[in-house]
Design a protein around this nucleic acid. Structure first.
Lengths: 314, 314
DNA sequence: GTGAAAGCGCTAACAA
DNA sequence: TTGTTAGCGCTTTCAC
């Protein structure tokens, strides 16, 4: 166009203080720069950290905003959030720590939602084949294995795995990884948390498991906790019972939430690469939004050990 | 309408699997059931807790969704989020812990955004008069006063107030409340946190202040921390220096984040009534959205003491 | 290179 | 009580 025309337009824009109306834009094009993010509860520090990573990935590179949904592990809330996304014209959603092979998720996919599942709770292979949902998670087997191996390397003889009960796949895989290197005597200790979405229940469970652990004979000298919140509760509970950490018992968590560095002693843990994982999730969504024929895939990320002070030194 | 007509419509709805398109609805009516929420960082537990409270207030009662914006204390991000809200047609926003008398906020209000400020950083009186922004915060003076009084009641003789430096109004008021009941010898100890939006910097500051505190003569026996994260850092730092909490030094925080009950010893703190505060904020937004002539007001909420284990018993 | 017009899916006002 | 239509602000196609 002629630069004269351009400047005429630009002055009109300035004159009228014109801002394009995205709603009209969206009505016309069917596109909106938003993504949905469905988490059990934003108050859980590990979901908060993931939310930040997703927000940055979406916003920084693509100018997309993230519409957050808390499910509080309530199926109706899940279903209604998915419906709302669709009616807002938002077509991409990341679903966190939830079993996405349930009917309401399938229905949403059928209605056109592009979905990626983070930290899925069913076998990824089942997922991709049947449901066209991407799966992104850390290699949980490896996480359990690295954690256990670290304890063994630091002289632990009697290791156990502490977890909430319930057979979701990520827990199962962590346990298998743990068992793959643990001595035959190793055992699993578990209990049921009150509610499964909040922020403190997992730590409360840790406190109650601590009481069980001190009564074990022989007493364990190394614990892998299924996640950091549980590990933090374990530390608090064990210290209350006059167990020294790490002198008497070493503890390794999984997740590397920011709190891990703040507790006393600072928690040694296994860290998933959340920035990279968030990047991939947003990428996949954008890619499949642009071309819905792209098929779902599985992405497995390698976790790393973060050494702090909750494991006895050599 | 005739019930016959109604059923004809309903069967058509079912037939076509009809779902109203909110985007078109919004284009027509100019209304959308969404609110903006601008926080420094969702990873900070106290903002996460507030976000949950706002989400519940908006969703449960009104079916509104919340669009979350993280500013990371970056003015450009603030301004661009406000612009985005406007272009999405979202007209109500809650701005958290930010100085809303800055030009980009005023500009957004001029363009039609209805704003409420939570935990504002300027005098509420300045705000309401000039800018048509509601102000909702806890009575910070009272928080500081209650905290200090609790220490005195439990036999502390040499109390200090620990804070990040910088003269924002909420800090100032907490200090004034503290001073209103503290003995003349009481002092303020402060330091600069590295970054002001994250999750761990405040706790790091606490650790570094701990070193200063042990060197004070006479050594304090009671500390009010400006917020819980600082208090938690203080506890960690002081324990590393072999100070016993609460036997040697008692500590009171402010905020009552969920972590407060998890640290060792569990933190005694001052709790703002965030559910009630979130309810009022959403209410105000809805009310003023419906009738923009309603003028801005200030709401001051009374905090309560939550006793745990970080203050010596009598 | 520029301007005009149709239409996205809905609501609200009006006509039948 | 029911059916029709204009128009929200944009993008896209087409005519000029």
């Amino acid at each position: 166009m002629r630069k004269e025309t351009l400047s005429r337009i630009e002055s009109a824009i300035a004159d009228l203080n014109y801002r394009p109306n995205r709603v009209a834009q969206q009505l016309k094009t069917g596109q909106t720069p938003m993504l949905g993010l469905l988490v059990p509860s934003i108050v859980n520090p590990s979901f908060a950290a993931l939310t930040r990573a997703v927000d940055i990935a979406a916003q920084e590179k693509l100018g997309y905003h993230v519409l957050l949904g808390n499910t509080y592990r309530n199926q109706e809330k899940e279903a209604s959030f998915l419906d709302d996304l669709l009616s807002y014209g938002i077509k991409g959603v990341i679903v966190v720590s939830t079993q996405v092979n349930q009917p309401h998720f399938k229905a949403a996919v059928d209605k056109g939602l592009i979905m990626v599942n983070y930290d899925g709770r069913i076998h990824a292979s089942d997922l991709a084949e049947n449901t066209q949902i991407d799966n992104v998670s850390m290699n949980n087997f490896l996480a359990g294995k690295i954690a256990c191996q670290h304890l063994l390397d630091h002289g632990c003889q009697r290791v156990i795995f502490a977890t909430e009960s319930g057979k979701i796949i990520s827990r199962q895989e962590k346990i298998e990884g743990f068992m793959s290197v643990a001595p035959a005597s190793a055992s699993i200790i578990e209990g049921k948390a009150e509610i499964a979405y909040g922020d403190a229940e997992m730590a409360e469970l840790g406190k109650s498991l601590a009481a069980k652990i001190v009564r074990m004979t022989p007493r364990p000298d190394g614990i892998v906790a299924v996640n950091d919140m549980l590990a933090i509760g374990l530390i608090a509970g064990l210290r209350n019972l006059n167990i020294r950490i790490p002198e008497d018992i070493s503890i390794v968590g999984i997740d590397n939430i920011s709190l891990a560095s703040l507790v006393n002693p600072a928690l040694t843990t296994i860290a998933p690469p959340i920035t990279a994982m968030a990047d991939i999730m947003v990428d996949r969504l954008i890619k499949r939004l642009a071309d819905p024929t792209v098929s779902a895939e599985e992405y497995l990320f390698t976790p790393t050990l973060v050494c702090r002070d909750s494991v006895q030194s050599l």
